[in-house]
Simulated assay, not measured.
Amino acid sequence: MSSTPVALVTGTSRGVGKGVATALRDAGWTVFGTSRRGRGPDGVTNLTCDHTDDDAVAAVFERIESTVGHLDLLVNNVWASPPGFAGFTEKFYQRPLSDWDTLITVGLRAHYVASVHAARMMTARGSGLIASVSSFGSRGHLHSVLYGMSKAAIDKMAFDMAHELRGSGVSAVSLWPGLVRTELLLSAGISEFAGFPISEAEDPTFIGRVIERLATSPDLGTRSGHTLITAELGAEYGITNDDGTAPASHRGPFGGGALYPPS
């Protein structure tokens, strides 16, 4: 059985998930990743998983249990876009009801299902972190009604999970990345997106380095239940993008103020 720290990152075929899995791998973790086609970075155990299939999700955790015996970190990142997501221009009442099937079923329920399995493994061992990727869409309108609903629910999920995990040694947090320099965004050849400069955006691997530092921090338990802004955590930890720049927090543009827990 593995004595190195073990992570499961969901949705690792590209974007944030791929960057997080890469950063954890580079930090010496044993990393499992999921995607619908089993794609992900080299050096990661890439598993095929449809996160709308509860049996498939259970099989992923059974695989981890049988091969390495424990799980230290779950990063809930899997997400699926509905048709037309490349910039919602329609109102919610003009969109098909099937948007629910991706933005809520995959964007929220899948996080809950994976968290249930992770919590069972982690509480048995008395340690671990469940980190769910959320968004500033919890605070202000971003993309669509259902997108905002899913992200707000992820924040509350982490808060309430932390309450029920208290005393178990397992922590739960919600994370707000800002604008992320994904492959798709960089391929657009633009200098800003929605008013935010690409030069101040976050690299996917930056988010992974922040999560790795958080998961190994001695004060992790004091942050359980919190919604945390990755750019601000990076500044606290002295973590930068791959090019040495420090990404900007979007707290101000999205209204400022406190996050979970309620002040």
Rank of each mutant, 00 (worst) to 15 (best):
M1H: 11
M1K: 07
T4H: 13
P5A: 04
A7S: 12
S13F: 07
V20D: 06
R25F: 05
W29V: 09
V31R: 04
F32M: 11
G38N: 10
R39W: 03
R39Y: 07
G40M: 07
V44K: 03
N46T: 14
T48L: 06
T48V: 15
D54M: 06
V57D: 00
A59M: 09
V60P: 11
F61V: 09
E62H: 14
R63K: 15
E65Y: 04
S66I: 03
T67E: 15
V68Q: 11
H70W: 05
H70I: 09
D72R: 07
L73W: 03
L74E: 07
V75K: 09
N77H: 09
N77E: 11
S81Q: 13
P83R: 13
F92T: 12
R95K: 14
L97K: 02
S98I: 09
D99F: 09
D101N: 15
T102W: 03
V106N: 04
R109W: 08
A114C: 15
V116R: 05
M122S: 05
T123M: 13
G126H: 10
G128P: 00
I130W: 04
S138G: 11
S138V: 05
H141D: 02
L146P: 00
L146F: 02
G148F: 01
S150M: 07
M157F: 15
M161D: 05
A162I: 08
A162E: 06
H163P: 00
G167Y: 08
S171I: 10
S171G: 12
W176T: 04
W176P: 00
G178F: 08
L179P: 01
T182W: 06
L184E: 13
L186A: 09
L186F: 01
A188T: 11
A188C: 06
G189R: 11
I190G: 03
F193G: 00
P197S: 08
D203G: 05
I207F: 08
I207T: 05
R209G: 01
T216H: 01
D219P: 08
T222Q: 13
T222P: 00
R223V: 07
G225D: 08
G225C: 08
T227Y: 01
I229P: 02
T230N: 00
E232P: 03
G234C: 07
D242H: 01
D243A: 10
G244N: 06
A246G: 07
S249G: 08
H250V: 04
P253K: 06
